[in-house]
């Protein structure tokens, strides 16, 4: 914890775990999709499901999926803003299994593409994204994060790394579909991954999808 973490952050209350953390998970989803989705369903689990309205978790999630910053005082009016901007939203409650008590599953759709992102708020506003599009992962969003879906063939990873001009902090590779020969690579970096690198990587024939979420 740095001095700045002790004296901050600036945020909208009331709770760093139930408000700030919730907003950051939804804001990650917003950044991952690249824009506000057309429709979204928030599936609340555990403590999120129990005390959601009293902590403003619902408003924080809506604000986050619309791309608001944690210190935006319009979070309070998230319902009205969502309605005015035509966002279709829903809150449901479900036991999501053996996950942190403060967990939400975000099902969103944009341009006939669907996104499924699960995240946990683990305290002090810190989050972990634990699943993206049915692939389990562990993303803290403390780094710039690139997620690529690749063909599970020899040399695929090497071809991605070849186009990367910045230092890698963390790297994960996981086979996600043995039958379809699909794997997922998550790359976390301190430095921003240059647009040129990303372009080259996404043009790579081994790469089926490439998402990039800049550190907030």
């Amino acid at each position: 914890m740095s001095l700045l973490d002790v004296v901050g952050p600036v945020m909208v209350g009331p709770s760093s775990s139930h408000t700030l953390g919730a907003l950051r998970i939804a804001r990650f989803a917003y950044k991952f999709i690249g824009e506000m989705p057309e429709s979204v369903n928030f599936v609340l689990h555990g403590s999120f499901a129990e005390t959601w309205k009293g902590h403003g978790t619902d408003k924080a999630l809506l604000a986050g999926i619309m791309g608001m910053h944690p210190w935006d005082e319009r979070i309070r009016e998230a319902y009205i803003i969502a309605k005015n901007s035509g966002l279709k939203y829903k809150f449901t409650f479900e036991d999501l299994g053996e996950v942190h008590p403060n967990t939400v599953l975000i099902d969103a759709a944009k341009n006939s593409k669907t996104y499924r992102i699960m995240g946990s708020s683990i305290g002090g506003g810190e989050i972990r994204i634990i699943m993206i599009n049915n692939v389990s992962c562990e993303i803290s969003w403390e780094y710039n994060t690139m997620l690529t879906v690749i063909r599970d063939v020899p040399g695929a990873l090497e071809r991605i790394l070849r186009n990367l001009t910045v230092n890698i902090s963390n790297l994960y590779l996981r086979r996600t579909n043995a039958l379809g020969k699909i794997a997922t690579v998550i790359i976390e970096t301190d430095e921003e991954i240059p647009p040129d690198d990303r372009k080259k990587i996404s043009e790579n024939p081994c790469v089926m999808d490439c998402y990039y979420v800049r550190r907030d």
Binding site: M11, G13, R76, G125
Partner: peptide
């Protein structure tokens, strides 16, 4: 009370103790 009303606060050191 501003924190409990979803006002903007500085979590120094936490939201509940702001």
């Amino acid at each position: 009370e501003s924190n409990a009303a979803m006002g903007r606060i500085v979590a120094c050191p936490t939201a509940g103790a702001c």
